[in-house]
Structure formats: C-alpha cells, structure tokens
Design a binder for these strands. Structure first.
Lengths: 161, 161
DNA sequence: TATTGTTATACTCTATAACTATA
DNA sequence: TATAGTTATAGAGTATAACAATA
C-alpha cells in the first residue's frame, strides 16, 4: 500500500514534505493560532470547542447532549459540563424532551445567537487578515482541500472496554 | 476588504462554505483525530506537542529551550516541564551550553530517535489508511494547500503587558 | 541590570467511575 | 435491564509569578 512519493521507511514525516507530515505539522500550528485567537475574543470569549458547539446548535437546533458530544468529540460528562457553563452564561437553552424525558433539547438563546455572530465576525475578520495574502486561486485550492479532508477525520469509535 | 464569496455580514462561517469557516470546522476535527491517534501509540506514547518537539529537535539538534518553546507555541515554564518529562523518559538529552551557561542544548537521545521513528511510522500508516481513499490529484491538492497555509499561522507575538 | 531557565501554584479541559431519573 | 444525562474525582496540559544562575 504505497501512498506517498517516498517509501514508508524513509524519513518523510520528519522531512515534512508529504501529506501525512504536512498534516502533523500544519494542523497543530493552525490549532494553536485558533485557540489563541478565540481566547482574545472579547464579549463572549469562547474556547474553540464552545464555539463549535454553538455553530452545531445553530445548524441543528433541539439536538440532544449525546448528539452534540458526538459531533464535538467529547465524552458525555465533559460535554455536560461545557453545556452547563454555556447555559449558566445564558448562551444556550436546555430543556427536557417531551417525548423522552431522559433526553435534553439544546438550542441557542437570543444571547447565544448574538454572541455566536460576534465571535464569527471577529474570527472571520482575523482569518481574512491572514488569507488576504493569497490569490483567489490559492484560496480556492485551500477550500477544496479542506472540503476533501472534512469527511475523512471522523471521531474514532469507542474502544471496547 | 472583501475576501470571500459572501458579504461579511452574511452567515458564511455558520454556513461553512468559505475558507474561514472550513478552517474553523475542519482543523479542530483533524486535531482531535491526531490527539486520539497519538495517545493510542504504544511504546513511547507521545502527545502531539511532544511529538512535534522531537521532530523539531531531529531537524534542529542542540536547540535551546527558548527556540523549541517558540516553535511549539508554549511558554517557557510549560516547555521546561515537558522537556524535563522527555529527559526523564530518556528521549532527550539536555546539557548546558559551553558558550553561555544560561542556555541549555537539547538533542534526541538514541532512544528518542528510535521512539520518534516508531511514532512517525505508526502515524504515517494511520494517516495513509485515511488518505488512501483519495486520488493522487486530491492528495497533491492537499499537500499544496497545507504548504500554502504553513507559513501563515505563526505564533501570535507576546502581548505586551 | 538583563536573560535563560526552573519551581511553585492555579486554572482549564477532559476522562473514568458512580449515580439519578426515565424508559 | 438499558439509556441519557449529571456529579464526583482525578489527571494532563498550560499559564502567571517568583526565583536562581549566568552574562
């Protein structure tokens, strides 16, 4: 199963010139940037997972805790804690499901929607400042690459205990 | 300063179809995957920053603590702690610089080099399993996009206190 | 006095285990 | 008994502040 230009016993990841090496190198670097950037957002300062949670609930109102946890990639207790913090901050509304009272239904509060919009705007502005250095063709190439990568990195299945 | 297909007051990040939105969506997702994958690596289980540190010292032997911290994106105390753990695990060698005894010189131990190679091999194999679904053209597009993104997301400068 | 790194301490985030409530 | 979520607790990772050693 040969995938890259170099043989697998070469130093490709260490040399940094194939897809695997680039992913290991560039993704953590961008992640650091995003974390720092989000933390500097005033008004509702959101962590990256918190921001992603709000975006998910914007797209999927009335989702359950399990559904959000699965998408974000957190275990239920961690997600419960994070959601609770967002509820306390009045960014989310949490209510019991009518059909199955074990489930909760989550949705953005008006406050949460406004905070999300502000955070999005600021993030987009910041990223735009960086991406402005690129040609439209380069930007299109990046969009295309990310769209290809998006469906590939799904959450690992639970390791059977 | 118009950069994207949509106006900035539209819901582009929330719709998820421009470069900024894709970065916010896809990068954390891949990062989660990498974290989980590295954690499952047996032999020397390394966190993502630990792995990056070893790669950096493979490429830059005898670097100082400050140089590594700057590249990885950690403050000195955090980096010092991490390096110390790697020294204790016999993956790194730390010695005082001869010219300036305030500085330390860091390099991989033979153990560290071997651990890095094993970790790299496993990571590459895992990523290859994912990327095998793509055509060579798609892989080339991804490499190109990541190479474009790599120099753009450098560590934020220290906020002046 | 300025710089390099370490130690002390605290905070954030996440996980596992035990528990509650509902089905 | 099985499932959705919460609470209790612990561990990893990072930051700021105070410190030590060297320049």
């Amino acid at each position: 199963m040969k995938l890259f230009a170099r043989e697998s016993n070469s130093a490709s990841v260490l040399a940094g010139d194939d897809a695997a090496a680039l992913i290991m190198d560039v993704v953590p670097q961008i992640m650091n940037y995003l974390r720092d950037e989000m933390r500097l957002n005033r008004l509702p300062s959101l962590s990256v997972p918190q921001f992603r949670t709000l975006v998910f609930l914007y797209r999927h109102p009335n989702a359950s805790l399990s559904q959000v946890a699965d998408y974000i990639g957190l275990k239920l207790p961690s997600m419960s804690k994070m959601v609770n913090a967002l509820v306390v901050r009045k960014l989310l509304i949490r209510r019991a499901s009518a059909e199955d009272r074990r489930c909760i239904r989550l949705r953005l509060s008006p406050n949460g929607l406004e905070g999300l919009m502000q955070s999005r705007h600021r993030t987009e502005t910041q990223l735009a400042r960086i991406l402005v250095a690129l040609t439209p063709e380069q930007q299109a190439g990046i969009r295309e690459a990310l769209q290809i990568l998006r469906p590939l990195f799904v959450r690992r299945p639970e390791s059977a205990p």
